[in-house]
Computed example of a mutant assay.
Amino acid sequence: MRAIVVSTPGGPEALQEREVPTPAPGPGELLVDVAAAGVNFIDIYHRMGRYPLPTPFTPGTEGAGIVEAVGEGVTEVSPGARVAWAGPLGAYAEKAVVPASQAVAVPEGVDLDVAAAVMLQGMTAHYLSHSTHQIRPGDTILIHAGAGGMGQLLTQMAKLRGARVITTVSTDDKERLSREAGADEVLRYEGFADAVRALTGSGVDVVYDGVGAATFDGSLASLRPRGLLALYGQASGPVPPVDPQVLNAGGSLFLTRPTLVHYVATREELVSRAADLFTWLASGDLKVNIFQRHPLADARRAHEDLEARRTTGKSLLIP
Rank of each mutant, 00 (worst) to 15 (best):
L153V: 09
T155D: 15
T155V: 13
Q156H: 07
M157N: 04
A158D: 10
L160W: 14
T167I: 05
T171K: 06
D172F: 01
D173V: 11
K174T: 06
E175P: 01
E175H: 01
L177F: 15
E180A: 14
A181C: 09
G182P: 06
G182K: 04
G182Y: 03
L187T: 04
R188S: 07
G191L: 08
F192K: 05
A193V: 10
V196L: 03
L199G: 09
G203I: 10
V204C: 07
D205F: 01
D205V: 12
V207H: 00
Y208Q: 12
D209V: 00
D209T: 00
G212S: 08
G212Q: 02
A213Q: 07
A213K: 14
T215A: 13
T215F: 02
D217M: 11
G218S: 13
S219A: 06
L220C: 11
L220Y: 11
A221G: 03
L223W: 02
R224T: 13
P225I: 15
L231G: 11
Y232A: 14
A235W: 00
S236A: 09
G237P: 05
P238T: 08
P241Y: 07
V242Y: 13
Q245T: 12
V246N: 06
V246F: 13
L247T: 10
N248P: 10
A249Q: 13
